[in-house]
Design a protein around this nucleic acid. Structure first.
Lengths: 189, 189
DNA sequence: CACCTGATGTCAGTCGCTGTCACCACCACT
DNA sequence: AGTGGTGGTGACAGCGACTGACATCAGGTG
């Protein structure tokens, strides 16, 4: 026997997604998510810093993979090539095609609620800053690092949206390659 | 004689900035801002959708100028040239050098508080979306529009940060031209 | 067996924010 | 002059997000 049912965090997360899908983010209280998981509101806030974070804590792991992949890129790669490599690596490991249905559900919840979009956009800023720092650790000057990192986040954002589009079959890394080419084409006419 | 003291909105905004600067965003309640303005908390929330918005409602005007400048760009300009033109126009009219001290104070408040950074990053997303829509209205395909718009927001962000740096003397439009060149250099080695 | 540890429950409290109703100058119209 | 509409405001009650403080309780450790 165990002290408590294990996996409280996971139970809270899946209960939250289920309830948000049914009734929308705003119409669900933290206490309800906790109750649906057999826990109390106070315990919910011990696992997640706030109600929105229950949808975003996985993103921290993605950022970790991304930043580590920057450090693992070939030493002779240019800043942008480094970001391309890291973005490809992180996307391939974190967003396999099996994850697409879950990502669509999650994105549907976010797209329906402005406060969730705020959190999402801030996480993208942090991702960009994390990549820029990792580039600087490789000796890239700050200005180039910030621009290469932000371009990588731009490409990720556009490619990710395309990946979630109904009927889309291509993998996220494939779409990222496509968007990189489009970005270069747009900026150099 | 007037019914009420006019300029309630402006009084709330300047009282808020003063209090935030003294004690930080979190340590100031909406009721205190209202009281310092000779109003009630309820009236504060009639003028601003939430406590953070008191620092961001001016940004809506910037976006309006930006989007209208996209429509006013020369008809033969490429998507990126259109964004460059609009960014230059909006920055010149909305961020003259006289505004730099105020912008520094405001940015200092935002940089010290994560929820404010969330709002700021969401406004940048909206700005990007607004520009992309204006480009599409000019006949630019969606994919190119999104990438050109997002690149413009990237350039604005980097240039704006540089504009606020201590000792920086150059104008925001000048810095934006510089960053555009850097971005092209980073992406096309 | 006593003690420590860590996840949880309980409770009270603050603050952001909202709905509702009343008030009260000013304005327009008759 | 009277009548009614309008819009900014005050007063009040209430909900939900979040926090601090303290108690509980089962398991591991010595």
């Amino acid at each position: 026997m165990v002290r408590w049912e294990p996996g409280a965090r996971d139970r809270l997360r899946s209960a939250a997604i289920e309830l948000f899908t049914e009734r929308g983010f705003e119409a669900v209280t933290a206490a309800e998510i906790a109750e649906a998981s057999g826990l109390t509101e106070r315990t919910f806030f011990r696992h997640f810093a706030d109600k929105r974070e229950v949808l975003f804590d996985g993103q921290n792991f993605f950022q970790t993979v991304f930043v580590e992949s920057v450090a693992a890129a070939p030493a002779d790669a240019s800043p942008v090539q480094t970001v391309e490599f890291a973005l490809h690596t992180a996307a391939a490991s974190f967003f396999p095609d099996e994850r697409r249905p879950y990502s669509r559900v999650r994105q549907g919840i976010i797209d329906a609620n402005a406060p969730l979009q705020e959190r999402e956009s801030l996480k993208m800023v942090w991702l960009s800053q994390g990549i820029a720092e990792a580039l600087q650790a490789r000796g890239v000057p700050e200005a180039q690092a910030a621009l290469a990192a932000q371009s990588g986040v731009t490409v990720f954002g556009v490619a990710f949206t395309r990946w979630l589009a109904p009927g889309e079959q291509r993998s996220l890394p494939d779409l990222q390659r496509e968007v990189w080419d489009e970005l270069r084409g747009v900026l150099t006419p």
